[in-house]
Amino acid sequence: MSDAEGVTGQVIELRLPSRLGYERIAMDTAAALARRMGLADERIDALRTAIGEAVTNAIEHGNQADAAMKVVVVLTVRPAELIICVSDQGRRALALEQTKTQPRIADAFQRADKGGWGIWLMRELMDEVEFTLAPGGGNQVRMVVHLERSPVGDQ
């Protein structure tokens, strides 16, 4: 597919119901694409984790797990990068200051759930992460993975 890539990129869109479990489909789809773009295995694992967190957030928080609401994952393939946009329908808006905090281990022990690490993880794992409002009014996170060409090749 490399010879048909334009500057605008080729777009694959995935629309998922807001039901936990479907984040796995998004992870597998993105991994399948990333593998074919030549990303190294550890970068693919990082991408899987980041997209899993983004879609889980969209299902649980943005759409409040209402299965009728959609999570839209748009994968854009460009010659030097893969862009992943995850948007929800914004039942609950994400406070922007919430996207910049750094979780602390000490706090994690106080929480009943294991949550609170998703956004931090996405920022750690992806080359670019940006939170905005989706065109339809929901939450949107845009993540970018740069394709680095290793001089020795790490196939």
């Binding site: 597919m1 694959i12 995935l14 789809t29 399948a32 074919r36």
Partner: peptide, 22 residues
């Protein structure tokens, strides 16, 4: 679940992997 692809040969494998996962 819905997947929308460009009409470029090669992208069918992405749909295949998504549907296989489901």
């Amino acid at each position: 679940m819905q997947i929308i692809l460009p009409s470029i040969l090669g992208y069918e494998v992405i749909a295949r992997d998504a549907v296989a996962s489901l």
